[in-house]
Design a protein around this nucleic acid. Structure first.
Lengths: 258, 258
DNA sequence: ATGTCTTTGTGAACGCGTGCACAAAGATGG
DNA sequence: CCATCTTTGTGCACGCGTTCACAAAGACAT
């Protein structure tokens, strides 16, 4: 994962592998686009291309759901949209709360992708009293004091944490205590939760660091032949293969801010 | 993944598995926290707990970097911070451009996590002429017309796409043509890029859908006892025992335990 | 009906990632 | 110097995920 999960020993799902579950939304999106263009059927090859995966993988993924295709023809788009939606639990409406209405929280509240696919922003919660009552994305922000009440009144089971790292664990604990069993965490912290609670993490700086690793590797690919052990601060390869990438700032010593 | 990856057949990295690379930022963060508390050394057990992983996994991960620990003692925090930073390419400063300064783009521009760890927001780019010149997070927004010039003048190799889905591929193409070789994509689309370009995807609605799947499974866990095989069509009551799977989008109250 | 053609569904092989369990290595104390 | 204790580094086995390759299944034409 790209993004990763926290804990959760094995895929206890009745049959559907976790990797497959992670791809179902991808297929669903591609299928929805086809549906809007009124395409009646699609082959595994075409759909796989649209979703950016291998066609054999796609077929195997679908085989876990059942035999929904027709040999020689392909898959019925509408039917498949329904089956995947049902499998993912999107035929019901999930109320979601967003905690931490800073820049990111506000962006999430405004994000259309929520409402469009089975999710509904039930409430926005922030610890800042000055935010209370202020509407964001048409929804008034409520104060953290009422968190438990909000969760219970709306039957919320999915929470989004967009607070600073320092507040995340505390918010998480309160969400879980109030009945939330799935958490999407944007704060750069490792959350600890009791068994039975799912946490998924989205971490911008981690993603960038992974890109930086590959970027560095690309830049030093020709020169790094037998690096052996640890050439310390020597590996300053220049000249990348083709495009003019070049070093941003020539030589930077071991800078490691904060 | 939270998140997934796009393409990239195999780990061509000289020795370091992709899964390990994805965890290095996690270790680095935990180590940085220890460093700030002036902790001199840390055992694999302690560090693993802080990073939320298995200690054996952590030791194996570090073994790919070299033998940086001392048996009977543990790892030197400062030294390890440096080694991981170097491995990830964070000892140099990576200029990054953010394209699409909507709610999300602005949030990213304001996100402290960028600057704090080796990344620098070199420019903000948006297609809306009304945005041009307007400062966001202290940086004036520039128009898309100047994209190529900005990339080249700043030696940017990492780009962040925070545009609407419809514009993403076009922006991506221009970024790549201008020399960008790593892309962090927030737009809900599958980007196609030439070989040699890395794409990482962060998709909020996909993460939520995965959570919804597990949430639904949890809700129907008690009733799902003897499922047997998949009864093809008329597939009813497989897993989601209680919840009304038929209702497209009624006001199904999100029933939740306790 | 029969044959051909397309596409699914899946058995099987392979490779990666994970976790156990332990030997090797060094610290520490007598 | 030797014994003991702690913790690393890793060989090994196992399970998951991916991919290949092909037989089975259906559509379609003759």
């Amino acid at each position: 994962m790209a993004t990763g999960r926290t804990h959760r020993p094995a895929t206890r799902s009745r049959g559907i592998p976790e990797a497959t579950v992670a791809r179902l939304p991808l297929y669903l999106r591609a299928l929805t686009a086809l549906s809007e263009r009124s395409v009646p059927t699609v082959s595994s090859e075409e759909l796989a291309a649209a979703a950016g995966v291998n066609s054999a993988k796609l077929r195997k993924d679908f085989s876990y759901l059942g035999s929904y295709g027709t040999r020689g023809v392909g898959y019925d788009v509408e039917y498949l949209v329904y089956q995947i939606s049902r499998e993912l639990g999107l035929t019901q409406d999930w109320p979601v709360v967003i905690v931490g209405i800073g820049n990111l929280g506000a962006a999430l509240a405004n994000y259309g992708g929520f409402a469009s696919r089975g999710f509904r922003v039930a409430a926005l919660i922030d610890a800042d009293p000055a935010m209370a009552g202020k509407p964001v994305a048409g929804i008034p922000v409520q104060h953290t004091d009422d968190l438990e009440k909000i969760i219970k009144n709306n039957g919320v089971s999915i929470g989004v944490i967009a607070t600073p790292a320092g507040a995340a664990q505390q918010v998480c604990d309160r969400l879980v205590a109030a009945g939330v069993t799935s958490i999407l965490n944007f704060a750069p912290t490792v959350l600890s939760v009791p068994d039975g609670v799912d946490v998924r993490k989205v971490d911008l700086s981690i993603e960038l660091q992974i890109l930086a690793f590959h970027e560095q590797r690309k830049a030093g690919e020709e020169t790094a032949v037998g690096d052996g052990a640890l050439p310390a601060a020597t590996g300053r390869g220049v000249a990348a293969g083709d495009s003019a990438d070049q070093g941003p700032d020539g030589d930077v010593p071991a800078v490691m801010p904060a």
